[in-house]
Design a protein around this nucleic acid. Structure first.
Lengths: 193, 193
DNA sequence: ATAATTTCTTGATACAGATCAATTTATGAA
DNA sequence: TTCATAAATTGATCTGTATCAAGAAATTAT
């Protein structure tokens, strides 16, 4: 538990510095969560209740169209997670969240986070900076999706996050890159030779 | 000028309420800008100096790969614009911004905006809420790019923003949707019949 | 361990959308 | 207006990736 809290604090301090008071106010509303692998955390149509800090594990955000499963992104150790859009305006989720590996960490409820924003300016800033960073990541991703071939997308993934090839089933990585598992497998073979 | 300021105020008030003091502090650092059509505002490699409020006109964000021009998005009347990632960490732009139509509005310099954030909590909140909304939009866009056919993407665009077909050259809309101008034209023909 | 299920690989074929090319239409300038 | 340039259309062809299919490898459950 102490280790998780230390991790959460460290993640916040990437963005802002906290006084002792602020640190205490920040930590107290978070509670522990833990899920087995392949467990749906937030399903389609549910309203996202929590904002997650993933201490250990991997989650995937995904949606389904015509029975096909599309991954929008993944959350790893030390990152934040949750169905953002549903959480932000407390509306039904149009995409879902589930674990890929056993996952545990800390989470905070909507009202408690709103109270943090209300009570302390520094958390507004933290959130602004965090969302800004997510936005930059989305930009990188959408430029790749728009302009790169399957081979380029595969090579970029391997270069930027080689570890995910062991962590995440290839079918999920494939849909994340906008290709079929078959094409992903072929690109993998090609890259090795 | 007064009309533009009113527009800027209205755009802020979509997200937060301002006291008279805050309103005054907010408005004063913005200055007018105006560009002809097809004018590069921020080029690749430049550092984005401004955050823009587009009062009237259309801008496009784009990048070039292998000599091909890809549009990442557009800004219309009453919206914010700028090369966000470059602006946020004051680093060289990896995508560029230019006008499509004659465009004018208001803009604020990086340091002045940082000062607003420092001085008034409400502007941190405004920015947080604004970036959150942009993020939701990105999600919609990337789900469409990942899972929709050319025909579906075209139909979605027409349904959601029919006016852009008159405003923006088809070649730009085509690349935004991840297809060639030829395919865009064919989808257009198909949709009419 | 062994069976059952799922994931991954590999080959053959199909097709949506890209590319190439030639007109037509629209936009802008002199 | 008329000319020049750029954008859009349309047809013919090509190709990267999807789809279909079947076997191999890896996981998971009993």
């Amino acid at each position: 538990m102490e280790e998780m809290i230390a991790g959460l604090k460290a993640s916040v301090k990437q963005f802002v510095n906290l006084t002792e008071n602020e640190e205490e106010a920040f930590i107290s509303p978070w509670s522990k969560f833990e899920y087995n692998k392949n467990t749906v955390i937030t399903d389609f149509g549910q309203t996202e209740k929590y904002f997650y800090y993933v201490h250990k594990g991997v989650m995937r955000g995904y949606f389904i169209k015509n029975g096909i499963d599309y991954n929008m992104g993944f959350s790893y150790d030390g990152e934040y997670s949750g169905v953002f859009d549903s959480f932000l305006d407390q509306s039904p989720a149009v995409w879902a969240l589930e674990t890929i590996t056993p996952t545990y960490g800390l989470r905070i409820e909507y009202q408690a986070l709103m109270k943090l924003y209300d009570d302390h300016k520094v958390f507004e800033r933290w959130a602004r900076l965090f969302y800004q960073r997510v936005l930059v990541g989305y930009g990188v991703f959408s430029r790749s999706i728009l302009a790169d071939t399957a081979e380029e997308k595969f090579n970029r993934l391997v270069k930027q996050s080689p570890h995910v090839l062991q962590l995440i089933p290839q079918k999920h990585l494939a849909s994340y890159l906008g290709m079929t598992p078959e094409t992903f497998s072929r690109m993998r073979k090609k890259a090795m030779s």
